[in-house]
């Protein structure tokens, strides 16, 4: 490893740690919130959609939990990262270090939350007596693909937000729409055949569907599905990287 890479890694790590410390700064329950928040959302949705309105889905609780946990990661990571430059303005205007480290560090706390929540998911999966199959082995691969997708979107959002502060409201609305258009509380199987193609244009929908397949249904996503997913993710990631590289030198003066 060369020296500047090691140096970047150290800076990344320190920023990530301080972000993590600051996240639940001054709160009593602290890190417990990372578990409480998605579980509360899961609880209320479960009550509504299991007792008030019924979906004809086997293992609905598990499908819902996976949907909520993985959707939650998307919401949290993109929202936190979007604000990361503004939150770090004091640092950015005083000292130079590679700017992408801030974005990487900001996504890291959300990734950690996701990993903690994944443990909860696994406990539920095992508790529900679903037989885990070898399909579970591609879980890490899916996680990496998902992370790169979020990273690509975060690059775009964070750099645009420095100049256009309306973005936070626009993004909030888009996330609301996304919540209903993504199979979070329902599954792809209950979507009428003719609409499925359009819903699956959304890479997050594809990812959540794939996670459900390997965790609950014990089946591997098809090769085509996975290829499309990786392709779309790569495209978004590269676009994010491209925009970021072009604009990153002007963050300090626009902040």
């Amino acid at each position: 490893m060369n020296k500047s890479f090691k140096q970047s890694l150290r800076i990344f790590w320190e920023i990530a740690i301080s972000d993590f410390k600051l996240r639940y700064n001054n709160s009593i329950l602290g890190y417990l919130w990372t578990l409480i928040k998605p579980l509360m959302l899961f609880g209320i949705l479960y009550v509504v959609f299991s007792f008030f309105m019924r979906f004809e889905i086997d293992n609905y609780a598990l499908h819902l939990l996976v949907g909520v946990v993985f959707w939650n990661f998307f919401v949290e990571a993109t929202t936190i990262t979007m604000h990361s430059f503004i939150n770090k303005a004091a640092l950015i205007t005083k000292i130079y270090f590679p700017r992408h480290l801030i974005v990487l560090a900001a996504t890291m706390t959300s990734l950690l939350t996701l990993l903690l929540n994944s443990i909860v998911v696994f406990v539920f999966v095992i508790y529900s007596a679903v037989d885990l199959s070898w399909a579970i082995l591609i879980f890490p691969l899916l996680l990496i693909v998902y992370y790169f997708l979020v990273l690509g979107i975060s690059f775009i959002l964070s750099i645009l937000y420095v100049k256009f502060r309306d973005l936070q409201h626009i993004w909030e609305v888009l996330l609301q729409i996304g919540f209903w258009l993504t199979p979070v509380i329902y599954t792809v199987s209950i979507i009428p055949e003719k609409y499925r193609f359009y819903v699956l244009l959304n890479p997050v929908a594809r990812i959540i569907d794939s996670f459900r397949k390997i965790l609950i249904l014990n089946e591997l996503p098809t090769f085509l599905d996975t290829a499309i997913l990786i392709g779309v993710t790569a495209l978004i990631f590269l676009l994010g990287l491209f925009i970021f590289k072009r604009k990153q030198a002007y963050i300090a003066e626009n902040i």
Partner: peptide, 10 residues
């Protein structure tokens, strides 16, 4: 200027 870029909450 003032500070190397401290984080006020740390």
């Amino acid at each position: 200027e003032l500070g190397v870029g401290f984080n006020a909450d740390l």
